[in-house]
Design a binder for these strands. Structure first.
Lengths: 202, 202
DNA sequence: ACCTGAACACCGTTCAAGT
DNA sequence: ACCTGAACACCGTTCAAGT
């Protein structure tokens, strides 16, 4: 049929991303299919491949937006309180963001590139950006420690919060009830940071 | 062709599970397909459906074996040392088990039942069994606390270790280098438990 | 330049038909 | 009783052909 021109290239791209995001939000990565996206936006399957290299490319783009969205939420956390309070707020923000659209966030863990391929450089940069936000909060709590120790402590804190939210939103590993995850995040942040302090003093 | 009888029902079941496990170990859940399993064991696709209800049923069976395998490893941890040392050993055992076959362990998080369906009762029981092992180690550290607090503390510890191993074996979220995960688990266990103690005393 | 739709090589699952 | 293989309804991706 040839050019349709009812949408600009940018609009078409947005249409595809919106439809894909909606599908994943409802049923996870397994519900995403190029043909279903094409159906929903009224184009043929081939059109997706004019805009994205393939489904992996499309999914990576969505993942990038998810990470950006979390970074924005973390930036809203006020930095005027005590470091421990900041860390708790950071953890709560992570929990809130990821449990509001759990299937979408789960995309970061469900989706794997084919064997040899590694994620693009911008992807790792976005992840690093998240980590830096955590380090900035942990650093004041460890004034005597070198940067490598601060980085490790931040990684552990981050991973711990991730672990709680991951198990809370998992449908099969419900060692944690989703409603009760908030207090668990608080407990982790408080006990872990208290332990860090006492170790440094002792 | 009719009956082949070169394998008993039990042998056939084992053949299917072995081929499936091999496929997942190599390329994750995405690499599993009923047709490929059938090809590898020299049967037709339909045969799988005489043995398992469907692929979800097959995958749940594999997941059950993975959980059992982890439980066995945890049971090898000596219970003669201090509770903190036991907890560290438990965390290390989890890390070792899950990072030896990361794609296989990832199955528990990649695989989702269809919308309405929930996992069988035995599944949750196996998960509970794991949690009880952690609680048994945490309980002596919190002699003054009621069982609910012990349970929550154990959940947080478990989730934290899971978070570290999860990020260490993830191919895209490498906030944690896989080699360096051991010390991070130690750090989490030690700091968190130290923090728990000081909170109880304070 | 942009989009289509047929084509190719795959899927999961069912079930009548064969031995 | 057990197994097959064709059938159905799907996939991702490509690309010659159309406007």
């Amino acid at each position: 049929m040839g050019r349709r021109s009812s949408h600009t290239a940018g609009e078409l791209r947005e249409l595809i991303l919106e439809a894909s995001t909606a599908l994943i939000s409802e049923g996870g990565l397994a519900s995403l299919s190029a043909r279903e996206v094409a159906r929903r936006i009224g184009y043929s399957p081939g059109t997706l491949y004019n805009v994205f290299e393939n489904l992996d490319d499309l999914v990576l783009t969505i993942e990038g937006r998810l990470i950006d969205g979390l970074a924005e939420e973390l930036d809203k956390v006020p930095m005027t309180t005590s470091p421990t309070e900041q860390a708790r707020a950071l953890g709560r923000a992570y929990l809130k963001y990821t449990s509001e659209k759990p299937k979408l966030w789960n995309l970061l863990f469900e989706h794997h590139l084919p064997a040899g391929r590694s994620p693009p450089a911008w992807y790792q940069q976005k992840i690093d950006g998240l980590m830096q936000r955590v380090e900035a909060v942990v650093a004041p709590l460890m004034p005597e420690s070198d940067p490598a120790d601060v980085a490790r402590s931040a990684q552990v804190l981050w991973a711990g919060v991730h672990g709680i939210t991951s198990l809370a939103t998992a449908d099969k590993l419900s060692v944690v009830k989703c409603d009760g995850a908030g207090p668990l995040v608080d407990l982790l942040v408080e006990a872990y940071l208290a332990g860090l302090k006492s170790a440094k003093q002792g």
